[in-house]
Design a protein around this nucleic acid. Structure first.
Length: 583
RNA sequence: GCCCCGUUAGCUCAGUCGGAUAGAGCGCUGGAUUCCUAAUCCAGAGGCCAUAGGUUCAAAUCCUGUACGGGGCACCA
């Protein structure tokens, strides 16, 4: 219906422009839904936009357009109002079209039929040196909901986790596991104050011992050497001494333990994510950027030579620098340190080039908002390599504060006083956590009220929505309504009450809501849409009886409820939340 | 110092490709259940959309300045 009006308007406006002294006027017609029904169902502001171009005033132009607008059984009245709005009044029957559409498209209603290109979403990508904590939760949910949202919008989506398995922190993880391993049989060994302290390290060490028994134990002589090193663990560089020592006595064993620790850490992270309903289909390892195959140089080195062939690289103080300051960054950045090590940034340049080379139409990074200062240098590197910056989108996720009993839960990673994601899920249920994390705009601070998320009451918006679905199912149960049956004979022209029309209009807007949310990476809009839909339903439910004598009217209302139920289901599906049949 | 994000009802927040009278939930006041799930609904009170300018027929929405709050400015990852 809306599209019909837009098409018709376009015909008329084109004609007016053709007859005028002006040409080459670019315009786009948008139809807005009116809040106030005094103004009709839809309105167009096209006359106000074009008045100036056509050297006339908006009211006259609006009159001219509306005078030519053909009326029929669906479009009952067109009138000019206010400063030059053109208001359209459509027949009640047209609103019911959407119910048939929903009924035929089912779970696909709201999904785009057009292909919208390939997208890569990289998210979470937390260092594999500890379990996920609540700080990662918001990004995890955001990424996974955005993935299903974009899928609904017609994109082909890959979800990727970038594993930092190359740098120094992996060595610290390795040495931490080893010390815990030694402790199982050697009381003299103490944990380094600079290592990872969490209990998960002990669990990995126990596994290591089960699998390999005494393989990595110390000789008496080694023990005499390690004790003084362990005593002296205060400065950052002290743990490097320990790492070197471990490498010198274990040789290949060091790498065996490292890879064992990494595999175990990833298992922990993956299982936390899966419990949360988050699943990546791609895992990209930073270390793969440093593999040299068949005499070819590594991707990391290729990245540097890419930049330097475009004259964006120079050497200073023994290090290799990227001239990012020439491309809107604050200063130049080091790619390779004077000791020969690549920086994290260097990996990231190579990683992003790799993403580009995999030919996606959109490359989306989900980053914590504390990384926003990092974006200019990455963009600079891509620009210097001749990549299209429009393809790269970064969504910054603000921190979430946990609130329990009205008080902020204090957290600091340093003291180890953080709440892990699995603890959160134990406290509130994965679904509640998903909903509360996604219920706010990403770049806004969020207060996550643990008590509320756990509460099964009207205060909890998730239950409010799910309850609407369950209520509909309950009505269907009572009347033994057959959802599978073909309801072709239903007479939808009976749905004429104010509330019935309002809810049908809301159902009609679902596809454009999906499209809009997908375009701007704003999955939270779905939450608000569903709350509104649930609210319209509950209000309707309280104002009408559904199980009534009049079979025709009852069937029409059942068909409407069926549509509402389907859209709630489709919306919650994107959020990764269930639609219970009974509560 | 420089850069990013924010500031909307008592609280938590939507709304920002400019549109007619700025919304929701909570909280507050009052009401609805012999009847399909009251985990619900209905009504009321509550706003200089931080602030000062600018652009426009039209600004919470776009531009500039200011104040306040959060974050970021490594040969760390």
């Amino acid at each position: 219906m809306q599209q019909n009006i837009i098409n018709q308007l376009k015909l008329i406006v084109d004609e007016i422009i053709k007859e005028s002294d002006f040409s080459d006027i670019n315009y786009k017609i948008r139809l807005q839904e009116n809040k106030d029904k005094e103004h009709g169902d839809y309105a167009s502001n096209i006359a106000m936009i074009l008045a100036k171009n056509l050297a006339t005033n908006p009211k006259n132009l609006a009159e001219q357009i509306s005078k030519d607008f053909p009326l029929d059984d669906d479009i009952l009245k067109v009138e000019v109002a206010g400063p030059g709005f053109i208001n359209f009044f459509v027949s009640e029957a047209t609103h019911a079209e959407v119910l048939k559409k929903i009924d035929s498209e089912k779970v696909k209603y709201g999904h785009s039929k057009q292909k919208a290109g390939k997208v890569l979403i990289e998210y979470v990508s937390s260092n594999p040196t500890g379990p996920l904590h609540v700080g990662h939760g918001r990004g995890a949910i955001f990424g996974s909901v955005l993935a299903s949202l974009l899928t609904a919008a017609g994109h082909e989506v890959d979800e990727e986790y970038y594993v930092n398995d190359y740098g120094r922190q992996m060595n610290i993880l390795t040495v931490s596991v080893w010390l815990r391993y030694l402790q199982t049989s050697n009381k003299n060994i103490s944990m380094s104050a600079l290592g990872y302290q969490g209990d998960y390290i002990k669990l990995i060490a126990e596994e290591l011992f089960k699998k390999n028994k005494e393989k990595y134990q110390l000789s008496d002589n080694d023990q005499d050497n390690i004790l003084p090193i362990l005593k002296e663990q205060q400065d950052e560089k002290d743990i490097d001494t320990l790492i070197s020592f471990m490498q010198s006595i274990l040789g290949e064993g060091f790498f065996e333990i490292r890879s064992f620790a990494l595999d175990n850490m990833l298992d922990i992270i993956k299982s936390d994510l899966i419990n949360f309903g988050v699943e990546h289909n791609l895992w990209f390892f930073e270390s793969s950027l440093y593999v040299e195959e068949k005499g070819e140089s590594s991707k990391a080195n290729k990245a540097i030579s890419d930049l330097s062939s475009n004259d964006f690289v120079y050497e200073k103080d023994g290090a290799i620098w990227f001239k990012s300051s020439e491309l809107r960054d604050d200063k130049d950045r080091v790619l390779q340190r004077s000791n020969g090590d690549h920086t994290y940034f260097s990996s990231d340049v190579a990683y992003h080039l790799d993403k580009y080379n995999r030919s996606y139409d959109r490359i989306i990074n989900i980053w914590g908002s504390d990384h926003h200062g990092y974006l200019p240098r990455v963009k600079a590197a891509m620009e210097a390599s001749g990549k299209d910056l429009n393809k790269l989108e970064v969504v910054f996720i603000q921190f979430a504060n946990l609130v329990r009993n009205g008080e902020k839960v204090s957290m600091s990673t340093r003291s180890g006083d953080f709440i892990t994601l699995s603890e959160l899920i134990n406290e509130v249920t994965p679904e509640a956590a998903r909903f509360f994390y996604i219920n706010r705009k990403a770049d806004q601070h969020l207060e996550f009220d643990l008590g509320l998320a756990r509460e099964q009451s009207k205060d909890n918006p998730l239950y409010y929505i799910q309850y609407a679905h369950a209520r509909i199912c309950s009505v269907f149960n009572k009347v033994k309504y057959d959802l599978e049956e073909d309801h072709k004979s239903v007479n939808l022209s009976l749905l004429t009450s104010e509330k019935e029309i309002e809810v049908q209009k809301h159902l009609t807007s679902f596809p454009s809501l999906i499209e809009k949310a997908a375009k701007s990476n704003d999955p939270h809009l779905i939450c608000y849409y569903l709350k509104d839909l649930a609210s319209l339903f509950h209000s309707y439910y309280n104002s009408e009886k559904f199980i009534i004598e009049d079979d025709n009217l009852m069937n029409a209302r059942m068909f409407l409820l069926k549509g509402i139920k389907q859209v709630i289901f489709n919306g919650l599906e994107i959020l990764g939340v269930s639609s219970p049949e009974a509560m």
